Simulated assay, not measured.
Amino acid sequence: MRFFGLKTCDTCRKAEKALRAAGYKASVIDVRVDGVSGEDLKRFLDAFGSDLLNRRSTTWRGLSEEDRAKDPLVLLREHPTLMKRPVIESDGKLYLGWGGDVRSALLG
């Protein structure tokens, strides 16, 4: 399992703690510190489309209209914290966020 998030994100910390308690051994990738490969970003965008962009984030609100109009892949490369978190890859499947649907799928 690979877990893409931020160490400072409360939701990511809750998700990681719950996954570890359920016996998952997650390889944690901090999107700010470790970065996300272009290949992974492309796969995430293919899977989630524009839902991958966190339009409620402080980073998004600080962008100009010109920047917001950029291609999402370019935006995410420039501002990795714009990615909605966490993105979890488990057994070849991708999950976005830590909503009830994701918790149910991974924790049962």
Rank of each mutant, 00 (worst) to 15 (best):
R13E: 07
R13A: 08
R13C: 12
K14I: 14
K14W: 13
K14A: 15
K14Q: 15
A15N: 09
E16G: 07
K17C: 01
K17V: 08
K17R: 13
A18L: 13
A18R: 08
A18T: 02
L19K: 05
L19W: 09
L19D: 11
L19N: 03
R20M: 11
R20N: 10
A21I: 03
A21K: 08
G23D: 12
G23T: 11
G23H: 09
Y24V: 00
Y24P: 03
Y24S: 00
Y24H: 11
K25Q: 07
K25S: 09
K25V: 04
K25I: 01
K25W: 00
A26V: 12
A26W: 01
A26N: 04
A26Q: 09
A26I: 11
S27Q: 08
S27N: 08
S27C: 00
S27L: 05
S27V: 04
V28D: 01
V28S: 06
V28M: 13
I29A: 09
I29H: 11
D30R: 03
D30C: 09
D30F: 04
D30S: 06
D30L: 06
V31G: 05
V31R: 05
R32F: 11
R32C: 06
R32G: 03
R32H: 14
V33E: 14
V33Y: 12
V33D: 13
D34N: 14
D34F: 12
D34K: 12
G35C: 08
G35Y: 01
G35H: 12
G35R: 00
G35P: 00
G35N: 05
G35V: 07
G35E: 04
S37P: 06
S37C: 08
S37A: 11
S37D: 04
G38D: 07
E39M: 00
E39S: 04
E39Q: 06
D40W: 00
D40A: 10
D40Y: 02
D40F: 00
D40C: 03
L41P: 02
K42F: 06
K42A: 04
R43Q: 10
R43G: 08
R43S: 12
R43K: 10
R43M: 10
R43D: 03
R43N: 08
R43F: 05
R43A: 13
F44T: 01
F44P: 03
L45D: 02
D46L: 15
A47W: 05
A47I: 14
A47Y: 14
F48V: 15
F48M: 13
F48I: 12
G49T: 15
G49K: 09
S50E: 15
S50Y: 15
